[in-house]
C-alpha cells in the first residue's frame, strides 16, 4: 500500500465492531421489518383465500362425492325432484367435445400463426399490425366472443352447426371457444419459438436445410415443451369458460338425451357443459330445492377443478422441468 497505515489495528477493530453491531442489531430497522411483515401478510391472505375456497367447495360436495360418485358422474342436469338422478354426464359430454374442437381448430391455426410471425414474416408494418391485433384480441372479454359465436355460428350457419337445434350445439360452442383461446395459443407458441437459440437455426441453415426443414427439425422440437404448456393452459381456460356458452345457447334445464362421452352424433344437438351445470345449480340458492342443488354444484365444481387443475399442474410442471433441463 502506497499510503501506509492510517489507523492502528486496535482502532480499526473497534470501528469494525461498532459498525457491525449497529447494522446487524435486531430491531434497528423497525420500519423495514414492518414493511416485510405487511408484504408477508398480503401473501398469506392470498394463500388463505385459496385454501378457504378449496376447503369450502370440497366440504360442500363431500357427501355427494363419497356416497354416490358413480351415479353423479352418470346423472343428468335434470330437475330437483329426483335428486338421485342429478349428475354431470351431459356437462362432461359438452366440455369434452368443446375441448376436441379447441384442439382441432385453435391449436393448428394458433401454432401456424406463431410460426409465421416468428420464422417467416419480416418485421414490417403488417406483421406489427398482426401482433398488435392478437394482443388486443387476448384482452377482449369472453362474453364478447359469445356475441360473436351467437352471430356467426348460431345465427349464421345453423345448417352446419346444428340442423335440429337452431345452431345451439356443442359444435357452435366449441368453435366459439376455439376462437376465444386462439390468441393465447399464438402468444405462448410465439414465446416458445422466440426462445429457440439462433445458433441452432443458423447451424441448420449452414448445412443446407431450407427454412421449413429448419423449423420442422430444429425450432419445433426445441420449442415443443413451451408450445405444449401454452396449449394445455388454453385448454384449461376453454373448459372452465362459461360466459360465451350462455350466449351460444347452452341448455340450463332439462336435456332430452344423455349421450355417451364418445358419441360423436350428438355434437350438433342441444348441449350443456360443466361450467353451465355449475352455474345453473348454484343459481338454485334460496329456492325450494336448495339443499339438493348446492351440494351437487359443489361436487360438480370439484369434478371440474380436478380436470382444470390437472391440466394446469401438468403445464406448470412441464415448464419448470424443461426450464431446469435447459439451464443445466
Amino acid at each position: 500500500m502506497a499510503f501506509g497505515k492510517v489507523l492502528d489495528d486496535k482502532t480499526s477493530a473497534r470501528i469494525q465492531r461498532t459498525v457491525a453491531s449497529s447494522i446487524s442489531r435486531k430491531g434497528v430497522d423497525k420500519k423495514g421489518t414492518a414493511f416485510q411483515m405487511v408484504l408477508l401478510t398480503t401473501l398469506f391472505i392470498t394463500m388463505l383465500i385459496l385454501v378457504v375456497l378449496i376447503f369450502d367447495v370440497v366440504q360442500g360436495g363431500w357427501e355427494v362425492l363419497t356416497t354416490r360418485l358413480w351415479g353423479f358422474m352418470r346423472g343428468e342436469i335434470g330437475s330437483g325432484t329426483f335428486p338421485e338422478r342429478l349428475g354431470v354426464q351431459q356437462g362432461l359430454y359438452g366440455s369434452f367435445w368443446i375441448a376436441v374442437f379447441v384442439a382441432v381448430f385453435a391449436f393448428p391455426i394458433g401454432i401456424g400463426s406463431a410460426i409465421y410471425l416468428e420464422e417467416y414474416s419480416r418485421k414490417n408494418k403488417f406483421s406489427r399490425f398482426i401482433e398488435l391485433n392478437i394482443r388486443n384480441l387476448a384482452g377482449v372479454p369472453s362474453i364478447v366472443y359469445g356475441l360473436l359465436g351467437l352471430f356467426l355460428f348460431v345465427e349464421g350457419i345453423p345448417f352446419l352447426t346444428g340442423p335440429n337445434s337452431n345452431g345451439r350445439s356443442a359444435t357452435s360452442a366449441g368453435l366459439t371457444l376455439a376462437v376465444l383461446v386462439l390468441p393465447i395459443v399464438i402468444i405462448t407458441a410465439q414465446e416458445a419459438l422466440r426462445a429457440v437459440p439462433s445458433g441452432l437455426k443458423e447451424g441448420s441453415y449452414g448445412v443446407g436445410a431450407t427454412r421449413w426443414e429448419t423449423i420442422r427439425y430444429q425450432s419445433l422440437p426445441y420449442a415443443a415443451p413451451g408450445i405444449l404448456t401454452g396449449t394445455l393452459l388454453s385448454m384449461s381456460r376453454a373448459i372452465g369458460e362459461a360466459a360465451p356458452l350462455i350466449l351460444v345457447g347452452a341448455t340450463t334445464g332439462f336435456l332430452g338425451s344423455n349421450p355417451n362421452i364418445l358419441d360423436v352424433g350428438s355434437v350438433r344437438e342441444r348441449f350443456t357443459a360443466m361450467p353451465i351445470v355449475i352455474t345453473e345449480w348454484t343459481q338454485k340458492t334460496n329456492t325450494v330445492n336448495e339443499d339438493v342443488f348446492i351440494p351437487s354444484a359443489a361436487a360438480a365444481i370439484v369434478v371440474l377443478l380436478v380436470f382444470v387443475l390437472l391440466l394446469n399442474i401438468v403445464a406448470i410442471y412441464l415448464r419448470h422441468y424443461f426450464e431446469k433441463k435447459r439451464e443445466s
Binding site: 369450502d56 348454484t282 365444481i301 382444470v308 387443475l309 394446469n312
Partner: peptide, 26 residues
C-alpha cells in the same frame, strides 16, 4: 418463490364460475 409461484398460477387457473359459487355462498 418456487413454491408460491405455482400456487398463484393455480389460483389463476381456477374457472370464474368457481369464484362465482364462492362469492355467492361464502
Amino acid at each position: 418463490r418456487s413454491v408460491i409461484k405455482p400456487v398463484l398460477e393455480v389460483l389463476a387457473g381456477i374457472p370464474s364460475v368457481v369464484l362465482g359459487f364462492f362469492a355467492l355462498l361464502w
